[in-house]
């Protein structure tokens, strides 16, 4: 049972049906990064998916941008307890990117420029649940928010939406990525408050 904090009234009463437990609303777009923002030129950018056979599917920026894109309106939830509702993105669905990919593995490690990694079950990336996003609010995605392109998996805490993503590697077993080795939950469902180990 919670203790009451004398004199605390709570000002905002920000509870909303769309707000997962323990989150508060923000109008800003805060940044959570572990290190410097890498400088990435689209001329040198590529994105690839690698499977257990060693097969690698790779797109350069031009090929990637030629793929059909989707406008995504979604709520995002950061483990540091801010949520931002109704954000607007444009990106390529992972369903599109996985069309030609054959793998019997069930897990994925996302790798980013700068060395960041995060692990996800494959099923959380498919069926319209995840994108490689390159626009936010109709503008090119800012480098500090993951530009030129980031993973967008909005139904999980936002550290799963790897900034500066450069590739996915299929994994047989679920292995922890960067924050998952540093104290964060392996799956990260905001509605279950899967924040920490």
């Amino acid at each position: 049972m919670a203790v009451f904090s004398r004199g605390f009234g709570g000002r905002a009463r920000e509870s909303a049906p769309d707000l997962p437990p323990g989150q508060f609303l923000t109008e800003d777009f805060p940044v959570l990064s572990a290190g410097p923002t890498p400088e990435i030129y689209t001329a040198e950018w590529s994105f690839s998916i690698r499977t257990e056979t060693g097969a690698q599917h790779t797109w350069d920026w031009e090929q990637f941008r030629a793929l059909p894109s989707e406008l995504v309106s979604t709520d995002i939830h950061c483990v540091t307890r801010w949520s931002k509702l109704g954000t607007s993105w444009r990106g390529v669905s992972l369903d599109t990117l996985f069309e030609e990919v054959e793998s019997s593995y069930d897990y994925v490690m996302a790798h980013s420029y700068g060395g960041y990694t995060t692990n996800l079950p494959l099923e959380d990336l498919l069926d319209g649940k995840a994108w490689i996003a390159y626009e936010f609010d109709g503008e090119d995605l800012d480098p500090e928010h993951g530009g030129p392109a980031r993973l967008l998996v909005p139904h999980l805490y936002f550290w799963k939406s790897a900034k500066w993503v450069r590739g996915l590697v299929m994994m047989k077993d679920d292995e922890p990525g960067f924050w998952e080795q540093n104290g964060y939950h392996t799956y990260g469902d905001p509605w279950q408050e899967q924040r920490y180990w």
Binding site: A2, V3, F4, S5, R6, G7, F8, G10, R11, A12, E14, F24, A34, F178, W179, Q181, N182, G183, Y196
Partner: peptide
């Protein structure tokens, strides 16, 4: 803010609150 003004202006010795942690193994 909703919490920081309370912590800076209102909270007094003897008051109770709850904490979870320590958190984070990177920084």
């Amino acid at each position: 803010g909703e919490v920081s003004p309370y912590l800076v202006d209102d909270v007094l010795p003897g008051d109770q609150l709850e904490v979870k942690g320590p958190l984070g193994r990177w920084f």
